[in-house]
Design a protein around this nucleic acid. Structure first.
Lengths: 159, 159
DNA sequence: CACACTTGCTTGAAGCGTCAAGTATCCTGG
DNA sequence: CCAGGATACTTGACGCTTCAAGCAAGTGTG
Protein backbone atom coordinates (compact mmCIF):
# COMPACT_ATOMS: atom_id res chain seq x y z
CA UNK A 1 0.00 0.00 0.00
CA UNK A 2 2.44 2.66 -1.20
CA UNK A 3 1.89 6.42 -1.28
CA UNK A 4 1.17 6.55 -5.01
CA UNK A 5 -2.19 4.84 -5.14
CA UNK A 6 -3.57 6.39 -8.29
CA UNK A 7 -5.13 3.56 -10.27
CA UNK A 8 -6.52 0.73 -8.18
CA UNK A 9 -6.33 -2.63 -9.98
CA UNK A 10 -9.97 -3.70 -9.80
CA UNK A 11 -10.99 -7.34 -9.69
CA UNK A 12 -11.71 -9.04 -13.02
CA UNK A 13 -14.82 -11.16 -13.56
CA UNK A 14 -13.27 -14.44 -12.39
CA UNK A 15 -11.83 -12.80 -9.32
CA UNK A 16 -15.09 -11.06 -8.48
CA UNK A 17 -16.99 -14.36 -8.69
CA UNK A 18 -14.43 -16.09 -6.51
CA UNK A 19 -14.44 -13.23 -4.01
CA UNK A 20 -18.22 -13.36 -3.63
CA UNK A 21 -18.04 -17.11 -3.05
CA UNK A 22 -15.20 -16.79 -0.55
CA UNK A 23 -16.85 -13.91 1.30
CA UNK A 24 -19.97 -16.03 1.63
CA UNK A 25 -18.02 -18.97 3.01
CA UNK A 26 -16.17 -16.68 5.42
CA UNK A 27 -19.47 -15.59 6.96
CA UNK A 28 -21.69 -18.61 6.66
CA UNK A 29 -19.43 -21.59 7.30
CA UNK A 30 -18.35 -20.43 10.79
CA UNK A 31 -21.96 -19.55 11.53
CA UNK A 32 -23.12 -23.03 10.49
CA UNK A 33 -20.42 -24.80 12.51
CA UNK A 34 -21.06 -22.63 15.57
CA UNK A 35 -24.77 -23.36 15.28
CA UNK A 36 -24.20 -27.13 15.22
CA UNK A 37 -21.95 -27.04 18.29
CA UNK A 38 -24.25 -24.67 20.17
CA UNK A 39 -27.29 -26.77 19.42
CA UNK A 40 -25.78 -30.20 20.10
CA UNK A 41 -23.29 -29.39 22.86
CA UNK A 42 -23.94 -25.87 24.19
CA UNK A 43 -20.41 -24.79 23.31
CA UNK A 44 -18.99 -22.18 20.91
CA UNK A 45 -16.56 -23.20 18.20
CA UNK A 46 -13.75 -21.40 19.98
CA UNK A 47 -14.50 -23.14 23.27
CA UNK A 48 -14.53 -26.45 21.42
CA UNK A 49 -11.23 -25.64 19.74
CA UNK A 50 -9.66 -24.80 23.11
CA UNK A 51 -10.73 -28.07 24.68
CA UNK A 52 -9.84 -30.08 21.56
CA UNK A 53 -6.30 -28.68 21.57
CA UNK A 54 -5.91 -29.49 25.26
CA UNK A 55 -7.25 -33.01 24.70
CA UNK A 56 -4.47 -33.73 22.20
CA UNK A 57 -1.64 -32.17 24.23
CA UNK A 58 0.70 -34.14 26.52
CA UNK A 59 -0.87 -34.39 29.99
CA UNK A 60 -3.87 -32.59 28.44
CA UNK A 61 -2.00 -29.42 29.44
CA UNK A 62 -0.73 -26.34 27.60
CA UNK A 63 0.60 -22.87 28.36
CA UNK A 64 -2.01 -20.17 27.89
CA UNK A 65 0.04 -18.49 25.14
CA UNK A 66 0.51 -21.67 23.15
CA UNK A 67 -3.12 -22.56 23.58
CA UNK A 68 -4.20 -19.15 22.31
CA UNK A 69 -2.11 -19.60 19.16
CA UNK A 70 -3.36 -23.14 18.53
CA UNK A 71 -6.96 -22.03 18.91
CA UNK A 72 -6.43 -18.97 16.68
CA UNK A 73 -7.40 -16.45 19.35
CA UNK A 74 -5.96 -13.63 21.41
CA UNK A 75 -4.57 -14.26 24.86
CA UNK A 76 -7.21 -12.01 26.36
CA UNK A 77 -10.01 -13.88 24.65
CA UNK A 78 -8.56 -17.18 25.84
CA UNK A 79 -8.29 -15.91 29.41
CA UNK A 80 -11.99 -15.02 29.47
CA UNK A 81 -12.97 -18.32 27.87
CA UNK A 82 -10.85 -20.39 30.26
CA UNK A 83 -12.62 -18.60 33.11
CA UNK A 84 -15.95 -19.81 31.75
CA UNK A 85 -14.69 -23.34 31.06
CA UNK A 86 -13.25 -23.43 34.58
CA UNK A 87 -16.62 -22.49 36.08
CA UNK A 88 -18.19 -25.30 34.06
CA UNK A 89 -15.59 -27.71 35.50
CA UNK A 90 -13.94 -28.62 32.18
CA UNK A 91 -10.56 -26.93 32.61
CA UNK A 92 -8.28 -26.07 35.53
CA UNK A 93 -5.40 -23.61 35.84
CA UNK A 94 -2.15 -23.99 37.73
CA UNK A 95 0.92 -21.74 37.82
CA UNK A 96 4.08 -23.18 36.22
CA UNK A 97 6.64 -24.30 38.81
CA UNK A 98 9.74 -23.21 36.91
CA UNK A 99 8.42 -19.82 35.70
CA UNK A 100 5.86 -18.09 37.87
CA UNK A 101 4.57 -15.91 35.03
CA UNK A 102 3.32 -18.89 33.07
CA UNK A 103 -0.16 -20.36 33.58
CA UNK A 104 -0.83 -23.96 32.57
CA UNK A 105 -4.34 -24.93 31.53
CA UNK A 106 -5.39 -28.57 31.90
CA UNK A 107 -8.43 -30.42 30.64
CA UNK A 108 -10.29 -32.17 33.50
CA UNK A 109 -11.88 -35.63 33.33
CA UNK A 110 -15.25 -33.96 32.77
CA UNK A 111 -13.73 -31.83 30.02
CA UNK A 112 -12.28 -34.92 28.38
CA UNK A 113 -15.67 -36.62 28.54
CA UNK A 114 -17.30 -33.54 27.03
CA UNK A 115 -14.91 -33.53 24.07
CA UNK A 116 -15.23 -37.27 23.53
CA UNK A 117 -18.99 -36.95 23.32
CA UNK A 118 -18.95 -33.77 21.22
CA UNK A 119 -16.23 -34.53 18.66
CA UNK A 120 -18.06 -37.09 16.49
CA UNK A 121 -20.97 -34.76 15.78
CA UNK A 122 -18.66 -31.88 15.02
CA UNK A 123 -16.44 -33.90 12.70
CA UNK A 124 -19.56 -35.12 10.97
CA UNK A 125 -20.67 -31.50 10.45
CA UNK A 126 -17.28 -30.47 9.04
CA UNK A 127 -17.29 -33.46 6.74
CA UNK A 128 -20.84 -32.86 5.63
CA UNK A 129 -20.41 -29.16 4.91
CA UNK A 130 -16.86 -29.08 3.55
CA UNK A 131 -15.53 -32.42 2.37
CA UNK A 132 -18.50 -34.39 1.11
CA UNK A 133 -19.29 -31.79 -1.58
CA UNK A 134 -15.65 -31.69 -2.80
CA UNK A 135 -13.61 -34.06 -4.95
CA UNK A 136 -10.28 -35.40 -3.68
CA UNK A 137 -8.46 -33.07 -6.09
CA UNK A 138 -10.42 -30.11 -4.76
CA UNK A 139 -9.51 -31.02 -1.18
CA UNK A 140 -5.83 -30.90 -2.14
CA UNK A 141 -6.36 -27.62 -3.99
CA UNK A 142 -8.18 -26.18 -0.98
CA UNK A 143 -5.23 -27.11 1.19
CA UNK A 144 -2.78 -25.40 -1.18
CA UNK A 145 -4.98 -22.31 -1.61
CA UNK A 146 -5.50 -21.97 2.14
CA UNK A 147 -1.80 -22.31 2.87
CA UNK A 148 -0.91 -19.63 0.34
CA UNK A 149 -3.39 -17.19 1.81
CA UNK A 150 -2.22 -17.91 5.36
CA UNK A 151 1.42 -17.50 4.39
CA UNK A 152 0.60 -14.10 2.89
CA UNK A 153 -1.25 -12.98 6.02
CA UNK A 154 1.68 -14.15 8.15
CA UNK A 155 4.08 -12.16 6.00
CA UNK A 156 1.88 -9.05 6.19
CA UNK A 157 1.66 -9.27 9.97
CA UNK A 158 5.45 -9.46 10.31
CA UNK A 159 6.36 -5.94 9.21
CA UNK B 1 -26.95 -36.68 11.76
CA UNK B 2 -29.01 -39.82 12.31
CA UNK B 3 -29.72 -41.61 15.56
CA UNK B 4 -27.26 -44.44 14.96
CA UNK B 5 -23.99 -42.55 15.19
CA UNK B 6 -21.68 -45.36 16.22
CA UNK B 7 -18.52 -45.00 14.17
CA UNK B 8 -17.66 -41.45 13.20
CA UNK B 9 -15.82 -41.23 9.87
CA UNK B 10 -12.72 -39.33 10.95
CA UNK B 11 -10.83 -37.05 8.60
CA UNK B 12 -7.99 -38.61 6.62
CA UNK B 13 -4.57 -36.94 6.39
CA UNK B 14 -5.38 -34.81 3.31
CA UNK B 15 -8.66 -33.69 4.79
CA UNK B 16 -7.08 -32.87 8.14
CA UNK B 17 -4.43 -30.72 6.45
CA UNK B 18 -7.04 -28.95 4.37
CA UNK B 19 -9.26 -28.42 7.39
CA UNK B 20 -6.46 -26.83 9.41
CA UNK B 21 -5.70 -24.50 6.51
CA UNK B 22 -9.35 -23.60 6.00
CA UNK B 23 -9.97 -23.07 9.72
CA UNK B 24 -7.00 -20.71 9.78
CA UNK B 25 -8.33 -18.75 6.82
CA UNK B 26 -11.79 -18.61 8.37
CA UNK B 27 -10.38 -16.86 11.44
CA UNK B 28 -7.49 -14.86 10.13
CA UNK B 29 -8.63 -13.54 6.75
CA UNK B 30 -11.69 -11.70 8.14
CA UNK B 31 -9.52 -10.40 10.97
CA UNK B 32 -6.92 -9.09 8.53
CA UNK B 33 -9.51 -7.43 6.28
CA UNK B 34 -11.33 -5.89 9.25
CA UNK B 35 -8.03 -4.59 10.57
CA UNK B 36 -7.19 -2.88 7.27
CA UNK B 37 -10.60 -1.19 7.05
CA UNK B 38 -10.56 -0.18 10.71
CA UNK B 39 -7.07 1.25 10.44
CA UNK B 40 -7.48 3.09 7.12
CA UNK B 41 -11.14 4.09 7.28
CA UNK B 42 -12.49 3.53 10.80
CA UNK B 43 -15.16 1.17 9.51
CA UNK B 44 -15.90 -2.53 10.09
CA UNK B 45 -16.04 -4.95 7.19
CA UNK B 46 -19.78 -5.33 7.62
CA UNK B 47 -20.33 -1.56 7.62
CA UNK B 48 -18.23 -1.34 4.47
CA UNK B 49 -20.22 -4.12 2.85
CA UNK B 50 -23.49 -2.37 3.64
CA UNK B 51 -22.35 0.91 2.11
CA UNK B 52 -20.74 -0.83 -0.87
CA UNK B 53 -23.99 -2.65 -1.69
CA UNK B 54 -25.95 0.59 -1.45
CA UNK B 55 -23.43 2.37 -3.65
CA UNK B 56 -24.06 -0.12 -6.47
CA UNK B 57 -27.85 -0.18 -6.16
CA UNK B 58 -30.20 1.96 -8.28
CA UNK B 59 -30.70 5.33 -6.58
CA UNK B 60 -28.15 4.10 -4.03
CA UNK B 61 -31.20 2.69 -2.25
CA UNK B 62 -32.27 -0.76 -1.05
CA UNK B 63 -34.88 -2.38 1.19
CA UNK B 64 -33.51 -3.34 4.57
CA UNK B 65 -34.24 -7.04 3.99
CA UNK B 66 -32.49 -7.14 0.62
CA UNK B 67 -29.57 -5.20 2.01
CA UNK B 68 -29.23 -7.63 4.91
CA UNK B 69 -29.05 -10.57 2.51
CA UNK B 70 -26.55 -8.86 0.21
CA UNK B 71 -24.32 -8.00 3.16
CA UNK B 72 -24.60 -11.52 4.62
CA UNK B 73 -26.09 -10.40 7.93
CA UNK B 74 -29.28 -10.64 9.95
CA UNK B 75 -31.95 -7.97 9.70
CA UNK B 76 -31.46 -7.11 13.34
CA UNK B 77 -27.74 -6.63 12.89
CA UNK B 78 -28.36 -4.45 9.86
CA UNK B 79 -30.86 -2.32 11.76
CA UNK B 80 -28.31 -1.57 14.49
CA UNK B 81 -25.57 -0.87 11.94
CA UNK B 82 -27.77 1.46 9.89
CA UNK B 83 -28.49 3.37 13.10
CA UNK B 84 -24.76 3.94 13.53
CA UNK B 85 -24.19 4.81 9.88
CA UNK B 86 -27.11 7.23 10.09
CA UNK B 87 -25.58 8.96 13.10
CA UNK B 88 -22.35 9.30 11.13
CA UNK B 89 -24.31 10.87 8.26
CA UNK B 90 -23.57 8.18 5.66
CA UNK B 91 -27.01 6.61 5.30
CA UNK B 92 -30.61 7.78 5.61
CA UNK B 93 -33.84 5.86 6.11
CA UNK B 94 -37.25 6.55 4.59
CA UNK B 95 -40.43 4.50 4.67
CA UNK B 96 -41.55 3.05 1.35
CA UNK B 97 -44.51 4.92 -0.17
CA UNK B 98 -46.30 1.88 -1.57
CA UNK B 99 -45.80 -0.43 1.43
CA UNK B 100 -45.51 1.16 4.85
CA UNK B 101 -43.82 -1.86 6.41
CA UNK B 102 -40.79 -1.50 4.20
CA UNK B 103 -37.85 0.73 5.10
CA UNK B 104 -35.59 2.00 2.34
CA UNK B 105 -31.99 2.76 3.19
CA UNK B 106 -30.13 5.28 1.00
CA UNK B 107 -26.46 6.18 0.81
CA UNK B 108 -25.92 9.92 1.29
CA UNK B 109 -23.43 12.06 -0.63
CA UNK B 110 -21.06 11.81 2.33
CA UNK B 111 -21.52 8.05 2.38
CA UNK B 112 -20.77 7.88 -1.33
CA UNK B 113 -17.62 9.93 -0.82
CA UNK B 114 -16.60 7.65 2.04
CA UNK B 115 -16.92 4.53 -0.12
CA UNK B 116 -15.14 6.13 -3.06
CA UNK B 117 -12.20 6.97 -0.85
CA UNK B 118 -12.20 3.65 1.00
CA UNK B 119 -12.75 1.16 -1.82
CA UNK B 120 -9.33 1.28 -3.53
CA UNK B 121 -7.44 0.43 -0.35
CA UNK B 122 -9.83 -2.37 0.49
CA UNK B 123 -9.73 -3.90 -2.99
CA UNK B 124 -5.97 -3.67 -2.84
CA UNK B 125 -6.01 -5.58 0.47
CA UNK B 126 -8.29 -8.30 -0.91
CA UNK B 127 -6.13 -8.60 -3.99
CA UNK B 128 -2.93 -8.69 -1.97
CA UNK B 129 -4.13 -11.28 0.55
CA UNK B 130 -6.12 -13.64 -1.66
CA UNK B 131 -5.56 -13.19 -5.39
CA UNK B 132 -1.92 -12.23 -5.76
CA UNK B 133 -0.73 -15.45 -4.08
CA UNK B 134 -2.98 -17.64 -6.28
CA UNK B 135 -2.69 -18.79 -9.89
CA UNK B 136 -5.55 -18.16 -12.32
CA UNK B 137 -6.48 -21.84 -12.16
CA UNK B 138 -6.60 -21.69 -8.39
CA UNK B 139 -8.90 -18.67 -8.52
CA UNK B 140 -11.33 -20.68 -10.65
CA UNK B 141 -10.99 -23.66 -8.30
CA UNK B 142 -11.63 -21.42 -5.31
CA UNK B 143 -14.79 -20.17 -6.96
CA UNK B 144 -16.02 -23.71 -7.59
CA UNK B 145 -15.06 -24.93 -4.10
CA UNK B 146 -16.74 -21.97 -2.43
CA UNK B 147 -19.92 -22.40 -4.44
CA UNK B 148 -20.15 -26.09 -3.53
CA UNK B 149 -19.76 -25.38 0.16
CA UNK B 150 -22.32 -22.55 0.04
CA UNK B 151 -24.80 -24.72 -1.84
CA UNK B 152 -24.45 -27.39 0.85
CA UNK B 153 -25.02 -24.87 3.65
CA UNK B 154 -28.07 -23.53 1.81
CA UNK B 155 -29.46 -27.05 1.50
CA UNK B 156 -28.82 -27.75 5.19
CA UNK B 157 -30.61 -24.58 6.27
CA UNK B 158 -33.70 -25.46 4.24
CA UNK B 159 -34.91 -28.45 6.27
C1' DC C 1 22.01 -5.61 43.75
C1' DA C 2 18.87 -2.17 42.26
C1' DC C 3 16.69 -0.12 38.58
C1' DA C 4 14.41 -0.32 34.31
C1' DC C 5 12.60 -3.36 30.91
C1' DT C 6 10.36 -7.46 29.09
C1' DT C 7 7.26 -11.25 29.30
C1' DG C 8 2.94 -13.67 30.56
C1' DC C 9 -1.30 -13.30 31.88
C1' DT C 10 -5.63 -11.04 33.91
C1' DT C 11 -9.08 -7.63 34.38
C1' DG C 12 -12.84 -4.03 33.47
C1' DA C 13 -15.11 -1.17 30.40
C1' DA C 14 -16.91 -0.28 25.93
C1' DG C 15 -18.83 -1.85 21.64
C1' DC C 16 -21.00 -5.16 18.70
C1' DG C 17 -24.15 -9.23 17.53
C1' DT C 18 -27.89 -12.19 18.78
C1' DC C 19 -32.13 -13.48 20.53
C1' DA C 20 -36.74 -12.69 21.95
C1' DA C 21 -40.18 -9.57 22.21
C1' DG C 22 -42.52 -5.63 20.41
C1' DT C 23 -44.73 -2.37 16.91
C1' DA C 24 -46.67 -1.15 12.63
C1' DT C 25 -48.45 -2.24 8.27
C1' DC C 26 -50.56 -5.21 5.01
C1' DC C 27 -53.38 -9.18 3.41
C1' DT C 28 -57.12 -12.72 3.61
C1' DG C 29 -61.24 -15.28 4.51
C1' DG C 30 -65.67 -15.21 6.65
C1' DC D 1 -65.37 -4.84 6.86
C1' DC D 2 -62.93 -6.66 10.41
C1' DA D 3 -60.35 -10.55 13.03
C1' DG D 4 -56.47 -13.06 12.61
C1' DG D 5 -52.29 -13.80 10.78
C1' DA D 6 -48.32 -12.71 8.01
C1' DT D 7 -44.63 -9.54 6.87
C1' DA D 8 -41.05 -5.95 7.72
C1' DC D 9 -38.58 -3.88 10.74
C1' DT D 10 -36.98 -2.04 15.50
C1' DT D 11 -35.68 -2.33 20.11
C1' DG D 12 -33.49 -3.76 24.62
C1' DA D 13 -31.08 -6.93 27.28
C1' DC D 14 -27.55 -10.16 27.54
C1' DG D 15 -23.16 -12.37 26.34
C1' DC D 16 -18.86 -12.31 24.05
C1' DT D 17 -14.64 -9.98 22.07
C1' DT D 18 -11.54 -6.41 22.06
C1' DC D 19 -8.74 -2.87 23.78
C1' DA D 20 -6.15 -0.56 27.11
C1' DA D 21 -4.46 -0.75 31.45
C1' DG D 22 -2.66 -3.29 35.17
C1' DC D 23 -0.04 -6.65 37.94
C1' DA D 24 3.38 -9.96 38.94
C1' DA D 25 7.35 -12.62 37.84
C1' DG D 26 11.59 -12.86 35.27
C1' DT D 27 15.89 -10.67 32.80
C1' DG D 28 19.70 -7.82 32.24
C1' DT D 29 22.82 -3.82 32.79
C1' DG D 30 25.46 -0.53 35.06
Amino acid sequence: MGTAEQEPRWLDADEMQAWLALAGVLVRLPAALDAQLQRDAGVSHFEYQVMAMLSEAPHRTLRMSDLAQLANGSLSRLSHVVNRLQKRGWVTRQPCASDGRITLATLTEDGWAKIVQTAPGHVEAVRGLVFDPLTGAQVRQLNEIGRRILRTIDAEERD
